[in-house]
């Protein structure tokens, strides 16, 4: 067994690797805005040459937003200037530089509207540490395997409770299952349950150790934010102003999915060892009910995955890549 000291050491080591500190993002927001403005003021000459070069290769589009959105924002009313955003067009730097350096040539900003192109640099946030990304992808693979092999296991007895009389509750097509037969599916299930559990534990342990859980834990104060988000996603409401890395609905999803993971692991252990862990089995309402809870946890995952994938698709490449490379260009909350 691992000693307690070693476990604490590992958690501390993980905590030290964190770079993304959600609690300090807010402090940095203002610094970055200031930095952005002052750069435009002071670095006019080198900017031009940089802009010329980068225009030749790539105009550095603000990935976070679609081109049409960027254009729509360009002639924004002055009220918008009061809430400047990183990828927003040059009205903020332009207006401020006009005041200070009236004679400064504003040529580069005409050629490439986003200020990033002009400056040659852009703001990026380290959203997901290597630990989180590693666990995310490994867990995603394991989860897919657990669900597909779990369906195959369910086919062997597609019901709950008594075997006689037999009730076939659900017909799952063989094609979407893994393992070929009950024994093969169990091999996958027994192998990847360790991967699934280990990555889940490391992920949750990291979130707690780093304090990052605070950005995604769904709390009572998030409840009012859920309905506006749902309304927006189903195209009949305005987009609520995003003030945090994750909106209320995201928090709800990311919290419930960790709950589903915990439920599936605990119920899974009980289904695997209902006699050795008869106390836990009793707590969960007996062996029959434990199988039901295990199935419910699977349903939670199956409900989560399509929503998650649709959201990832809608939010574009830059957002997706933040789970691959950690850094997100021009995060919308800065």
């Amino acid at each position: 067994m691992f000693s307690r000291g070693a476990a604490i050491g590992v958690i501390r080591a993980i905590a030290r690797t964190r770079t993304f500190d959600p609690l300090r993002v807010k402090e940095h927001r203002d610094d970055l805005r200031f930095e952005r403005e002052s750069e435009v003021k002071s670095n006019d000459e080198p900017e031009q040459s940089l802009a010329g070069e980068s225009n030749g290769e790539k105009p550095l589009p603000p990935d976070a937003r679609s081109a049409s959105e960027a254009i729509a924002r360009a002639p924004a009313p002055p009220s918008k200037a009061t809430q400047p955003e990183p990828a927003s067009p040059p009205q903020v730097p332009a207006s401020s530089s006009m005041g200070a350096l009236a004679a400064a040539p504003a040529a580069p900003t005409e050629a490439a509207p986003p200020e990033e192109a002009a400056a040659g640099t852009f703001v990026s946030a380290y959203e997901h540490s290597a630990v989180v990304r590693f666990c995310h992808w490994l867990n995603a693979v394991a989860l897919g395997i657990m669900i597909a092999s779990g369906w195959r296991i369910f086919i062997a007895f597609p019901s709950f409770g008594a075997r006689i009389p037999e009730h076939r509750l659900l017909k799952i097509p063989d094609a979407i299952t893994l393992g070929g037969w009950l024994g093969g599916a169990l091999e996958w299930h027994y192998t990847f349950m360790w991967v699934f559990t280990a990555t889940g534990l490391i992920y949750v342990g990291y979130l707690i150790a780093s304090g990052e859980y605070r950005t995604m834990l769904f709390r009572p104060r998030d409840i009012p934010g859920v309905w506006p988000m749902v309304r927006h996603y189903f195209f009949f409401g305005p987009e609520p102003k995003q003030t945090e890395a994750y909106n209320a609905l995201q928090k709800f999803a990311y919290t419930t999915i960790v709950f589903c993971g915990t439920l599936s692991v605990f119920t899974g252990i009980v289904i695997l060892r209902p006699v050795q862990l008869s106390g836990l089995a009793w707590l969960m309402g007996g062996f029959h009910l434990t199988r039901v809870w295990h199935f419910v946890a699977m349903c939670g995952f199956v409900a989560f995955i399509p929503g998650h994938l649709v959201m990832v698709a809608l939010h574009g490449w830059n957002n997706f890549m933040s789970m691959v490379r950690g850094w997100k260009k021009n995060p919308e909350y800065l």
Binding site: T121, S124, A125, Y126
Partner: peptide
């Protein structure tokens, strides 16, 4: 923590 990059460094 947010950071400023140029394209090459980001890559």
């Amino acid at each position: 923590m947010p950071r400023r990059f140029d394209n090459k460094e980001f890559k």
